[in-house]
Each structure stands twice: as structure tokens, then as C-alpha cells.
Amino acid sequence: MTAPATAPAPVPEPGAAPSRRPRTGPRWPVRLAAAVLAALGLAVLLVPPLVQLDQQLVDLRSAGLPPSFEHPLGTDQVGRDVLLRSVYGLRVSFLVGLVAALVSMVIGGLVGLAAGSLGGVPDRLIMRVVDGFTSVPHLLFGIFIVAMFSPSPVAVVVSVGVTHWTTAARIVRSEVLSLRSRPFVEAAISGGAGRLRVVRRHLAPHLAPHLLLATVLMVPHAIWHETALSFLGLGLPAHLASLGNMINDGQRSLLAGDWWSSLVPGLFILVPTLAVAVLGQHWRDRLNPRLRSELSL
């Protein structure tokens, strides 16, 4: 859904030079993504206070109903409304994902800053550790952490945070390395600014947008991890309406033919992830137009 309305007019000759597209504001995928995210954000914020969801409510008379006017996306195997539960699930998953992304960004930011600004041997040592963490498959490590502790939001946050800070560390380090040799930083150092002052006054303002972008892009990934762990039965406690738990519950009734109880919650992962990816790409292009890729997103 990303490419369709992109501005580059169909290039007749594949080998031709890239068409220079006139850019007048964001293109429609970007607008659509923003609208979708805004709508989901509103739903997540407003629906829970307005419509109460009894987590334990079981209504076997309306179990496994297909989508209808009363239940737009059907009911699950114990009669709970799938749409309402999905919104609640998105809320839980989003909160867990956001906290996990923030945790990994804080760890990664500090590590990257330390590596980039210290340089030399400490830098090489730190980057070896980063390489090491990258070498352990994320989900496997996450599974291990959760398995050793009880299935709880904290365990999920820790398992995602501890495995995903390496990206942020790399980004921050490389930014710091490139900033270090810029004239304004050299001038500050020549002027007698201390290491801490250089970091605070000159590096941090430049790092902030990059780190923020990395955080935003990390949230869907963290949500993905939460849902994957929950889907495996290793994430959030089973009674919580989280998207992963819902897919896990609905998995059993899928073979009986009711697709909505497992496939609908998945859409609540897919759609926001796609929207964030589109917006993130747009933002990255604006941060650094030179890196604008051939993918017209």
C-alpha cells in the first residue's frame, strides 16, 4: 500500500536517471499512515474509559459468533467481543512496547554515547560487547529471560529491553563519531569546554532527533516481541487482553473455521506497524535527505 500514489511518474525506461519529483508536502501514504495512527491512538485512549471491558466476562451463549452488526468483528470462544478486546489488547501491547523501547533506547543511548565519546580502547571493548549481544538471537534470549522469571509485563519489558539496545548504541555511537570532528565541537573543545559540557550542549541536541526516531521505530518491534512471547505462552499473564494472548487463544478455534478471533488481533499489530514504518521512513528522509532511498515510500 506504500508505493501506489508515489509521485515519481512511471519511468518508461528502467535505466533512465531518477525522476526528480516535485515535493509539495507529504504524499498520501504518509497522510494515511498518520490518520490511521491518530485514529488508533484515539481509540486506545478513549474506548477503555468509555466502554468497560470485564476481563473475566464469559458469555457462552454468544461464543464464537461470526462478525455481525452487534459484534462487528465477531466474538471469541468464550463470547467476548473481538473488536473491543483488540482495542484493549492494543493498549496493553502499546504500553509494554513503549516502555520496552524506552528502556532499550536509554541503555543503547548511554552505551553508544560512552563508546563514541570515550573512543580508543574503551570504544572497541564496548563495541565487542555490542557485537556479542547482537550474536544471540533476540527471541531465543527473550524466551530464556521470560522462562526464568514468571510471565509478567516486567519480564517482557526486561527481555525486550535487554536484547534490543544494540541498534540504538550503534546509531548513537556513529553519530557521536561524526559529530566529534565537526568544527563547532572542535571549537568548543578548543575553547576549553569540558567533556560533559560538550556532550550536554553540543552532542545531545544533535542526537535527540535520531534517538527519538529510533525509539519510534523500535516501538512496533517491541510490540512484535511482546505479542510473539505472549503468543508462545511466555509473555503477559494469560488473563490479560493482550494481542498475543488473543491470537494464542484464537489459534485453537481457527481449525473450526472462525478466523476472526485469531486473525483480527493480528491486524491490530500489522496496521500500526506498517503506519509507523511509513511515517518513520518519511521522518528519516527529512532528517537526512541525502539518504533518501530509491524506494519511494
Binding site: T2, L263, I269, L270, L274
Partner: peptide, 27 residues
């Protein structure tokens, strides 16, 4: 590049990247 085929492939790749693999499996 730029044709409908390109758009379908690129769009599909992005949607696919966003879809959780266990969801794809269930689908």
C-alpha cells in the same frame, strides 16, 4: 520500476515486513 507490478511487489514487501510471522502462519 514504477509499474503496477513494482508497486504490488514493494507494497506487498512492506506489508509482509509488518505482519507477524505467527499471524502469517495462522492465515
Amino acid at each position: 520500476r514504477g509499474s503496477w507490478l513494482d508497486r504490488v511487489i514493494v507494497g506487498g514487501a512492506f506489508a509482509n515486513e509488518a505482519a507477524p510471522v505467527f499471524w502469517l502462519g495462522l492465515l
